[in-house]
């Protein structure tokens, strides 16, 4: 089967509702769960509002081992949904968890499996969504596969950015910025405070600390693109023009590359003054932590 094609196909995803969300959200992070009835003990799959045996509403989420037995399977050559065609032939199977419930899933395998085969749960990327699939590979093969199929952007607040996405932020520098930066860092360089002295330097004026200017980039990546949860892994900046007090700055970040397996981007960054002259230009690498579900 064409496992490597699964991430790129365009197919319908699950129609998740609040009741069923815990199942999908947890499966995506590698933890397979079912409901369990607190009244009669029945393991319930798929998730329901009440236990299908005793109609009790005392249903809890419990983790299952992810070890399962293949109850039946089919190698699909002509899918009912056209989006699956690039992945044909692929295998669907009925999978009975060792805890009892049976579910239908995509079976990841090199060769058509045997009924009764032992399978293991693995979160896998199908059409850009990480879904609970099952495989019959060795532990090592499975680890490679999990890395390969992983959606590094799962749970990221603003989702995965696209190459070429860009945003801008504007701000006017103030004398208070210089004081605040000194308070933070202890940087009391006379070029920020002694106006008479500063006028004699090549800058010809009081200038703000470089961190005041580049701090705008922190705001850009943390607030907008890639968004909340983002930290810098690396910045490489050229300071091209000094920035004085009371200047109108525009910071811009643009996505250059995006990794699929990890929430890491390379960005082009640039800050210009009101004359349009570049003050700072360079590159940055960011990592965006998944904050959803924390």
């Amino acid at each position: 089967m064409n496992i490597e094609k699964l991430a790129g196909i365009s197919v319908p995803g699950p129609t998740i509702i609040p009741l069923t969300k815990p199942f999908w959200a947890s499966a995506e992070t590698g933890v397979l769960t079912t409901q369990k009835c607190g009244t009669c003990g029945t393991r319930v799959f798929y998730p329901r509002g009440r236990c299908p045996v005793c109609w009790s509403d005392a249903l809890d989420w419990v983790t299952v081992s992810g070890v399962a037995r293949l109850k039946s399977f089919s190698e699909v050559w002509k899918p009912g949904n056209e989006g699956w065609i690039p992945a044909t032939p692929y295998v669907v199977g009925l999978v009975t968890l060792e805890e009892g419930p049976t579910l239908l899933s995509t079976i990841l395998c090199d060769q058509v499996p045997q009924i009764g085969a032992t399978l293991h749960f693995v979160p896998f990327n199908i059409g850009g969504r990480v879904l609970p699939c099952f495989h019959n590979f060795t532990e090592e093969e499975a680890k490679d596969m999990a890395d390969q199929g992983k959606d590094g952007w799962a749970g990221v607040v603003n989702g995965k950015p696209k190459i070429g996405d860009a945003i801008e932020r504007k701000r006017t520098t103030r004398m208070e910025d210089i004081h605040a930066f000194t308070e933070m860092t202890g940087d009391r360089n006379p070029v920020h405070y002694d106006e008479a002295l500063a006028k004699k330097t090549p800058f010809g004026k009081l200038i703000v600390q470089g961190g005041v200017t580049t701090g705008m980039l922190n705001a850009c990546v943390a607030e907008d693109l890639p968004g909340p949860g983002t930290v810098f892994l690396n910045t490489n900046l050229n300071f091209l023009k000094a920035v004085g007090v009371g200047e109108d700055l525009t910071a811009r970040v643009e996505i250059e590359t995006v990794r699929d397996d990890k929430p890491i981007c390379k960005l082009k960054v640039r800050i210009v003054d009101s004359a349009g002259d570049p003050c700072v230009e360079g590159e940055a690498t960011t990592y965006t932590m998944a904050l959803e579900g924390l």
Binding site: V11, P12, P14, Y46, V76, G80, N81, V92, L104, I126
Partner: peptide, 15 residues
């Protein structure tokens, strides 16, 4: 059936 079967490639009666 739409939420738990279709996303795994089991659309329609054939599978």
């Amino acid at each position: 059936i739409r939420e738990f079967d279709v996303p795994f490639g089991a659309s329609g009666a054939n599978p």
